[in-house]
């Protein structure tokens, strides 16, 4: 599709604009211009027919509207034409800790499908590290770190584009506030991503969410009526499958009601890079490696040892037992043995 030219946008029929750029319908609607009933007019004609009072009331000016429309179309075309920057790796280059001492590593590269955990005391700088990644720091944040994407200096778009964010964050606080059914909600999210095959992707998300939580829900359930476990499961499945962001940050995840291992597997199976700041031993060991932060700086990067891997297997078994006790209590059963 050709790029729009501001002058041309003013003289061709609104109907032609919509034929050429179907996605512009959203722009007309959200800016209070009824496109459907004015298809036969050009913007010049439309603006000359509406009276000054209406323009005043709606705070519309032709100059401003056309300028924004041109920008919207240009951005959308580049978004749609872009097959998406594939992010295969993320590299952190060292900066310094809170008192200026240089960080003690040469570089840290994390590949897609990899999980890395971040551990360290309160106030040590875990969230700051996550923020450096999100902002694609270039030695211009308080830590002096730099971030590379695919071994190169990242595109500025990661900072300023609203449709392409480097990072998606799973909220610690997993609530929904919108007044919609599960289906309407996913439809809306898919629409905002300009996804054409919505039906299949929505089914896939609901399947995966039901798989994670174990308590199934259907598409007509209002999202605000989901249980804690169901909400978390839906959010994780939605972020894995529908979010555009190649990197997922998790700043402590609540575990009740979902299978964390399956959740992380789902995220990496969709080609994401996952970083988890956590104090939970299971999550901390689920990564391939862990970053230890002290006093604002990365102190070391530890590979999981064989001992740790077998410890993880053991604590996962313990965790399963606790989950099973919880389930029995919830169902009103007596506890007889730990099995």
């Amino acid at each position: 599709m050709a790029l729009p030219v501001k002058h041309e946008l003013s003289v061709i029929k609104i109907g032609q604009i919509l034929t050429r750029y179907p996605f512009a319908a959203t722009f007309f609607e959200n800016n209070g211009i009824p496109a459907d009933s004015n298809k036969e007019k050009s913007l010049d004609e439309y603006f000359s027919t509406i009276d000054e009072t209406y323009k005043e009331d709606m705070a519309i000016s032709q100059e401003h509207f056309t300028g924004q429309l041109e920008e919207y179309i240009t951005q959308m075309l580049s978004f749609l034409g872009d097959t998406g920057t594939k992010v295969d790796s993320l590299t952190i280059l060292p900066g310094h800790g809170k008192t200026g001492e240089p960080e003690n590593f040469s570089h840290l590269t994390i590949k897609k499908n990899e999980i890395i955990s971040i551990v360290g005391p309160t106030g040590s700088g875990k969230s700051r590290l996550l923020a450096d990644i999100e902002w694609a720091a270039q030695n211009d944040t308080p830590t002096g770190r730099s971030i590379l994407i695919n071994n190169e200096q990242p595109d500025q778009k990661w900072r300023y584009s609203s449709s392409e964010k480097l990072v998606a964050q799973l909220s610690q606080n997993m609530n929904f506030v919108m007044d919609l059914s599960v289906h309407e909600f996913l439809e809306l999210h898919a629409e905002s991503r300009m996804i054409s095959d919505r039906k299949n992707i929505i089914m896939k998300i609901i399947d995966q969410a039901n798989h994670l939580s174990g308590e199934t829900f259907d598409t007509e359930t209002p999202i605000t009526a989901l249980s804690g476990g169901q909400s978390r499961a839906l959010m994780i499945a939605d972020t894995a499958i529908l979010s555009s962001s190649p990197i997922i940050l998790i700043d402590e995840i609540e575990n009740a009601g979902i299978d964390r291992k399956k959740a992380l597997e789902l995220l990496i199976s969709e080609g994401k890079i996952v970083l988890i700041a956590t104090h939970d031993p299971i999550l901390a060991l689920m990564g391939n490696r862990r970053i230890v932060i002290k006093n604002g700086g990365i102190e070391k990067i530890i590979e999981n040892t064989d001992d740790e891997r077998s410890i993880l297997t053991e604590i996962e078994i313990m965790d399963k037992k606790i989950q099973s006790l919880r389930r029995k209590l919830r169902n009103g059963e007596h506890l007889t043995t730990i099995d």
Partner: peptide, 12 residues
């Protein structure tokens, strides 16, 4: 107030 809503709601 992104902390009180989901990633999807923030994106939408």
């Amino acid at each position: 107030k992104g902390d009180i809503v989901s990633q999807a709601e923030r994106e939408v």
